[in-house]
Design a protein around this nucleic acid. Structure first.
Lengths: 222, 222
DNA sequence: TGTTTTTTGTACCGTCTCGTATAAAATTGT
DNA sequence: ACAATTTTATACGAGACGGTACAAAAAACA
């Protein structure tokens, strides 16, 4: 990653670009894009304004780069948690646990998902942000759908289930965790909701603890 | 509602406070709280800045009032769509259809839910916004849970299902619709996701169209 | 008609905003 | 040691920002 092989010609930069990007992301994450000033970013990264400009361009370009950075991290997390070496239930449990750990990692309290906390607001009026958000959501859907199809091939889930629809609902659980954590809900409540979502998606209906007698299911009325 | 009974003493106000509040909300809805300036609000409402100040207080107080207005509308919509005069499936279908109609009603394209589009961003650093958001989400959960319990009493849903957990997952479908519409997803895709969510919650598994042979369900692996 | 009361419209203030110009500092090459 | 190159640091400028003072306007009261 670090290509410091041939030393550059002039004065060496006093910052690590990727670390600065991470700090900038932290700042946007708490306050949102619009409420974060260049002074805030300068203070968070330790870079003064001209250096910020030279490294990333203007505020919006910097923000778009943080979105790409977050997407790359999310991609890696999806690949790791949804690996095919364990049952689908375990994979989803791992996915939701990893997400909650991230959503609750803020210094100023829980802050949820970076995309939902910052990009969702800008998405209406900024096409680039909207595109990044839509692509990120699509990647999550696709990764979960691929894992569900694997579970279907392995006989964990009935083969005629709509894997795409189920994946989008599994992603919906992720979305609600992100939103609710940002709204201040307790982590234990979100863990319970994640577990209930897994039960619903993987085939066991949500049942009040203490009254799970038999697991057959009523059919819908229509 | 209108108490114009006894005419006030001084010069009559040239605006309708509630209509102005609605216009202000439209403005926040598109751009978010932080990116909306008082000039934007002045232009949208037709009120000049001193009038805005006299009527609502500062920008934040005005925003908090729009949140209350939205919550009141949401409360009314929940009551209407979740009425007990039809099956749960129909009630949820009506709820999601009403929500989608709202989420796609923006002038600058779909904008999703007002709370998710604006309040979620401010919630981390503004306790009042966070409280309003949390209470609004709680009201939605509670309304859906009450409707689910009714369905259980009427035998539509098995009585030992965890109504609170199911309600939070039904709300999660609402949250994902709000987010995805703001991300630019097509309305038809969201309608399909809503239908799949109803199937999952009310008891019929999501099945690929064209292969719904029998409706029995696999059990979870654990 | 004149006084009182409330709202409107304009103009303004201090502050913060983003972005940049400019010079000093720190390195490589010769 | 000196020139060339790149980054840093300070400082600045034009404009937008939130919020308010003040006088004109429009109504009810006397």
């Amino acid at each position: 990653m670090v290509q410091k092989l041939v030393p550059r010609r002039g004065r060496p930069r006093a910052y690590d670009p990727d670390a600065a990007l991470a700090r900038a992301m932290e700042t946007f994450w708490d306050a949102g894009y619009a409420a974060t000033s260049l002074d805030d970013l300068s203070a968070a990264t330790g870079m003064n304004r001209p250096s910020l400009y030279g490294a990333f361009g203007d505020k919006r370009a910097l923000y778009l780069e943080t979105l790409e950075r977050y997407r790359a991290a999310a991609r890696a997390a999806l690949k790791e948690t949804l690996a095919g070496d364990r049952p689908l239930r375990e994979a989803l449990r791992h996915l939701y646990a990893t997400a909650l750990a991230l959503y609750f990692s803020g210094e100023h309290g829980a802050r949820g998902c970076y995309l939902i906390g910052t990009a969702a607001t800008e998405a209406v009026l900024d096409p680039a942000v909207r595109a990044a958000l839509a692509e990120a959501l699509g990647e999550i859907d696709a990764a979960i759908e691929a894992r569900i199809r694997l579970a279907q091939r392995q006989g964990e889930l009935r083969a005629d289930a709509d894997s795409a629809a189920l994946a989008r609902l599994a992603a919906a659980v992720l979305h609600t965790l992100a939103l609710r954590s940002r709204a201040g809900e307790q982590r234990a409540a979100l863990e319970a909701t994640a577990a209930a979502g897994i039960d619903l998606i993987c085939g066991r209906p949500a049942v009040k603890p203490g009254s799970r007698r038999h697991l057959r299911r009523r059919e819908g009325s229509s």
